[in-house]
């Protein structure tokens, strides 16, 4: 078990190193002079600020030092949590800018992913057991998965936001409010959160429900189900086995989907102008803020790696077979 986790950790570590290295290389090996390019595009009017920024970035890139030294420096500052200074929001450090957006993205992503997965699996399992439900869940599920995300997002924001006027369609909170811990602000936060959340939730829901339904039906047809039925085992027992076994591919599915879900959340934020990492990426691209972009990408990579690692461990805990295979050698 620990050997397995160790091996997984090693692979994740390797991925991380490669990702960081690529991240480091991009602005450095781009044609032209990206730093000057970036600064001139940042359109800073104050010449003094311009001068200090130029000095700062040239020093940071350490252009007079050998490449390996630059590379090592990059790692050292990375471990100090220093990802440089944002051009767009000079002189705020990149880490601070990112940390300001992360809560929004996580607050959107985690509930949307987990709830759609849980609710989708529930619906799917129900659909597999009752014809009436199957006839409703299945078509709705197919419609949901087949609809392009943009479509759902626009539809929701048009109907619930603009026509009905129940929910705001843009921003993380109203401009008239200051972030504070008050009911007014929390309510405002939630009402801004709702539409982006709902759109992500809905778009993922159908896929999980259909997947679960098909998996359960497959498991109910499996040889072990037939054998138990031949021995007169009650449907309850057979369903329990089928549900549990059908969960395993759904967990793997979650891991596989994670990357695309995160990409999807970037889209959501752009559509709803939600102040998370997605919007930040767009802004930093527009402003040629490579440090910020670098920092965000690094952050996303770390996030995906951590999430995958957690799912790996959960999978080991729920699938006895992987456990057996791992301990088989030592026992």
């Amino acid at each position: 078990m620990w050997r397995y986790i160790g091996r997984k950790l090693f692979i994740y570590l390797l991925t991380f190193i490669v990702a960081v290295t690529i991240n480091w290389m991009i602005p450095r090996f781009m044609p032209g002079d990206p730093v000057r390019n970036m600064l001139s595009r940042a359109a800073i009017n104050d010449p003094e600020a311009m001068a200090s920024m130029t000095a700062y970035y040239e020093d940071l890139f350490g252009l007079d030092e050998p490449l390996y030294q630059q590379y090592l420096n990059f790692w050292v500052s990375l471990f100090q949590g220093d990802l440089g200074i944002s051009v767009m929001r000079y002189p705020e450090p990149v880490t601070d800018v990112i940390m300001g957006s992360v809560p929004y993205t996580l607050g959107l992503l985690l509930p949307a992913i987990l709830l759609s997965w849980i609710v989708g699996n529930r619906f799917g399992a129900f659909a597999a057991r009752s014809k009436a439900l199957d006839n409703t869940v299945l078509p709705v599920g197919y419609v949901l998965t087949a609809t392009p995300y943009m479509w759902i997002a626009l539809l929701l924001s048009y109907t619930l936001g603009i026509v009905a006027g129940i929910f705001p369609t843009a921003g993380g909170f109203s401009y008239s409010l200051r972030p504070e811990f008050s009911w007014v602000f929390i309510y405002d936060l939630i009402s801004h959160w709702f539409l982006p959340f709902l759109s992500m939730f809905l778009v993922a829901l159908g896929g999980w429900a259909i997947g679960m339904r098909n998996m359960i039906i497959y498991e109910l047809e499996a040889d072990y189900s037939n054998y138990l039925q031949a021995l007169g085992a009650p449907r309850r027992l057979i369903r329990r086995y089928a549900f549990r076994n059908a969960m395993l591919p759904q967990i793997t599915g979650l891991a596989v989907q994670l990357g695309t879900i995160i990409a999807g959340s970037l889209l959501t934020e752009v559509v709803f102008n939600y102040p998370g990492l997605g919007t930040l990426i767009l802004d930093s691209l527009e402003n040629r803020d490579f440090f910020l972009l670098q920092g965000i990408l690094l952050f996303v990579v770390i996030g995906v790696l951590i999430a995958n690692f957690i799912i790996d461990i959960i999978y080991v805990l729920v699938d006895p077979r992987t456990r057996v295979q791992m301990t088989g050698g030592s026992s």
């Binding site: 037939n226 054998y227 086995y241």
Partner: peptide, 14 residues
């Protein structure tokens, strides 16, 4: 009672 033709896969794998 029955020993099925598929006895190799007749047991719940998990």
């Amino acid at each position: 009672s029955l020993i099925p033709q598929y006895a190799m896969s007749a047991l719940n794998p998990t």
